[in-house]
């Protein structure tokens, strides 16, 4: 079956959010109200499959549901309707350094964050030097990271995230931060992953990067996939409609 090499599968996936935060009072009242008008559909009836080794780009205006797709793939949230199937180890390069603790040192944070990303302690020991070298931290490795510059912070976070031997890499606009040198290094690393057959899902507003990097692109708007296919054509369509 062709399903065999599909690593991500969305079947009739819809995701509903409730608008705004609820107070206890409102929650109690809601129990007596039939259906709330505050619902917001971030995705409706999304179907797609990503095969191993593909580099999928997702473009669309803010609030169109791009990040929701990444969250569903990462498993941090569940679909309201439909089914999401994902196979393999995921490295979410979403908001780098999510597990960092500012009071802990670079060294402590490497162990903490790599463990959070599912790397065994022994593997971290083995890769520790590579991580420190890639992050280019030198003597600051035993300094609490709250004293790091934002560049150092990003480098460390990226260095840890790429050392996790992922099957699927989720990338959400990380390349928008950091200097050009850092961005180039990130891209180089992503290309390396691409070459060894890692599946990549890449959300970005950088149309050039999307066209250069992706093998297939989705254009998403108001909760649905408007167009999918060849990067050039999809980007063109998006540019015509939105930009």
């Amino acid at each position: 079956m062709e399903e065999n090499n599909s690593v991500i599968q969305f079947k009739e996936v819809s995701k509903k959010y409730k608008k705004g935060s609820k107070l206890l009072k409102e929650a109690l009242l809601d129990m007596f109200r039939p259906s709330s008008t505050k619902d917001f559909w971030a995705l409706s009836n999304i179907n797609f499959e990503v095969r191993k080794g593909e580099s999928l780009g997702i473009i669309g205006p803010n609030g169109s549901g791009k990040s929701t797709i990444l969250k569903l793939i990462a498993g941090v949230t569940v679909p309201t309707e439909g089914e999401v199937k994902v196979r393999g180890r995921i490295a979410p390069l979403i908001e780098l350094g999510a597990g960092f603790h500012p009071e802990l040192t670079g060294r402590e944070n490497i162990y903490l964050n790599a463990t959070i990303l599912g790397v065994k302690r022994k593997e971290i020991d083995a890769k520790f030097k590579d991580i420190v070298n890639f992050a280019d931290l030198g003597e600051f490795i035993d300094t609490p990271i709250k004293h790091y510059s934002s560049g150092m912070y990003m480098r460390l976070a990226f260095a840890v995230a790429v050392q996790t031997d992922p099957d699927i890499l989720l990338v959400d606009e990380i390349l928008a931060v950091g200097d050009t040198k850092f961005q180039e290094r990130c891209f180089q690393k992503m290309k390396e992953f691409q070459d060894v057959g890692v599946t990549i899902v890449f959300v970005s507003h950088d149309m050039k990067a999307i066209q250069n990097f992706c093998t297939r692109v989705f254009y998403i708007n108001s909760a649905s996939i408007i167009k999918s296919g060849d990067p050039k054509e999809v980007v063109k369509k998006y540019a015509l409609e939105v930009l």
Binding site: A74, P92, E95
Partner: peptide
């Protein structure tokens, strides 16, 4: 929060 909304654990 940042962990819960970004990474599945």
């Amino acid at each position: 929060t940042s962990l819960i909304t970004k990474i599945y654990l």
